[in-house]
Design a protein around this nucleic acid. Structure first.
Length: 460
RNA sequence: UCCGGCGUAGCUCAAUGGUAGAGUAGGUGACUGUUAAUCACUUGGUUGUUGGUUCGAGCCCAACCGCCGGAGCCA
């Protein structure tokens, strides 16, 4: 079957030519004047192609009049200038071949609005809606932009293990991976008998492995699935999500923050340049400030402050916070929101957190109280990026591992990096779904991944 | 996990403790270069589940289930 994408036909104004398209019917409107209008969508772009189906077509009464939303068809015809007002071109069909009918009383997608909650129950079909088609295309664009950006910056795309024995401390609970018979649960299982001869789980971060590769190849990044077995029930958390994790050798915290901010600006520019039709839909139907925000952020500087400065600002704020502001405690959602949405009204990068609230691998600062960590906070979404300069000094790293209650021997290979030609290095992690959320205005993270995994839900 | 809200027709939602309703979708007909088409008629219900209070429960109470929002955990 040689078909053209509707995206190409609508972009290319050439009319008076023959083409074949294939897709799913969005609506059919009949005219007793002797023809029907069919709105056809093939997923290639937001817009539909309007098809004029004349009653003289041989299967008009037998098939075309039975084309309800969701039916699949292959249509050949002539691309002509439209006589109607809603579109510049349309197709005058010469042949409509029905591939699959769609029973309207059973089909869950309606012409009218269906709630996002309802659509999650029919996730196998929801990509056929305007919203989820647009989300899927923007998500794709952000993934392509990620690869373009890091490739341009001289990074290698590397693949780190999905199954791992190393728990990236502090990152969250792991899903266990085992071939032991869980029907016969034991109190202290003998992992010698397990597939890997040790306790393993799904990765919570590729960072430790990425550090190894960065300390060989310079700049690398991973972009893969990540798993957290946390019982988190919020619009910002998934049990299975995708994370982008760049890691740079010969880099400090300032380099890290620069890279993170440049990356985000690149993403905002990329979707503005490549997804305007979909963004306009989101701007109209989901978040009316979306385009303005993206345009502003695509050129905006990020406010960069230290944790200590942030605490001072919050302490002086004329707002009553639910959680008290005190040096030494982590910033709460309400504090992050105040900084990005009220105080600065732009993305804010907070650096140099107290060592007690951050992971062992973050580089200890000279003050012996803080570590070279950074969080990039976005309005509405909150923490979008978490990163740090890594501790490259073996003696200090070993102490920090012990202080965290971990066993140095378990991290023998990670410590080896510091033994054999250690270099300063830094990196960060970006929750991919959160950036999709931010760039579409979608409120719930379950609606920016095709088949969301959350506590109690792994359907599809 | 904690706090709060919600659960009624295929879908989106109404309904003082007193006969379960509308829009939309579907069906029938009318009309029309329409575009969320329009107009008329019409099909459609174990009110999340299980108990309880009451002469009487969609409505009040309890437990459970599910969903949503917020918090925590984090990306």
């Amino acid at each position: 079957m040689r078909r053209e994408f509707i995206k190409k036909i609508l972009k290319d104004p050439a009319v008076e030519r023959v083409a074949t398209v294939a897709g799913w019917v969005r609506t059919r409107r009949d005219s007793k004047g002797g023809f029907s209008f069919i709105e056809l969508n093939d997923g290639s772009c937001f817009a539909n192609l309007q098809i004029i189906a004349d009653a003289t077509l041989s299967n008009y009464e037998s098939e075309i009049k039975k084309l309800f939303p969701g039916s699949s068809v292959v249509i050949s015809g002539e691309i002509v200038a439209s006589q109607g007002g809603g579109q510049s071109v349309e197709m005058q069909a010469t042949e409509i071949k029905v591939l699959g009918f769609c029973e309207p009383t059973d089909y869950p997608l309606q012409k009218q609005r269906v709630s996002f909650e309802r659509l999650r129950e029919v996730a196998h079909l929801r990509a056929r809606t305007n919203t989820f088609g647009a989300v899927t295309r923007v998500r794709h664009a952000l993934a392509m932009a990620t690869h373009n950006f890091f490739d341009d910056q001289g990074f290698y795309y590397v693949h780190t293990p999905i199954i791992t024995a190393s728990d990236c401390e502090g990152a969250g609970e792991m899903f266990q991976v085992t071939t032991l018979d869980i029907a016969k649960l034991e109190k202290s299982p003998d992992y010698e008998r397990d597939f890997f001869k040790q306790k393993t789980g799904l990765t919570v971060s590729g960072q430790l492995a990425a550090e190894c590769l960065a300390c060989s190849l310079g700049n690398v990044y991973t972009f893969g699935p990540t798993f957290r077995a946390e019982n988190s029930n919020t619009r910002r958390h998934l049990a299975e999500f995708w994370m982008v994790e760049p890691e740079m050798a010969f880099a400090d915290l300032a380099d890290d923050a620069d890279m993170a901010e440049n990356y985000l600006r690149y993403l905002f520019n990329y979707v503005l340049e490549n997804c305007m039709e979909d963004l306009q839909f989101f701007n109209k139907r989901i978040d009316t400030s979306l385009l303005e925000t993206l345009q502003k952020l695509s050129v905006s500087e990020f406010k960069r402050i230290t944790y200590t400065e942030a605490i001072a600002i919050l302490g002086q704020a004329n707002v009553s916070f639910e959680y008290p502001v005190k040096w030494g405690v982590d910033l709460q959602s309400e504090h992050e929101r105040y900084l990005t949405e009220e105080k600065f009204n732009c993305p804010v990068t907070v650096t140099d957190y107290p060592k007690e609230i951050k992971s062992f691998y973050m580089r200890l600062n000279d003050d012996d109280k803080t570590v070279a960590a950074m969080d990039v906070l976005l309005p509405n979404v909150g923490e979008i990026i978490g990163g740090s300069q890594r501790e490259e000094r073996l003696d200090i790293l070993s102490v920090r591992i012990e202080e965290a209650g971990l066993n140095c021997d378990d991290y023998w290979w990670y410590r080896d990096l510091r033994k054999f030609g250690s270099v300063p290095h830094a990196g960060f992690g970006l929750g991919f779904e959160r950036i999709v959320q931010f760039c579409t205005g979608m409120q719930n993270i379950r609606d920016v991944i095709a088949f969301p995994r959350t506590p109690g839900n792994a359907e599809f």
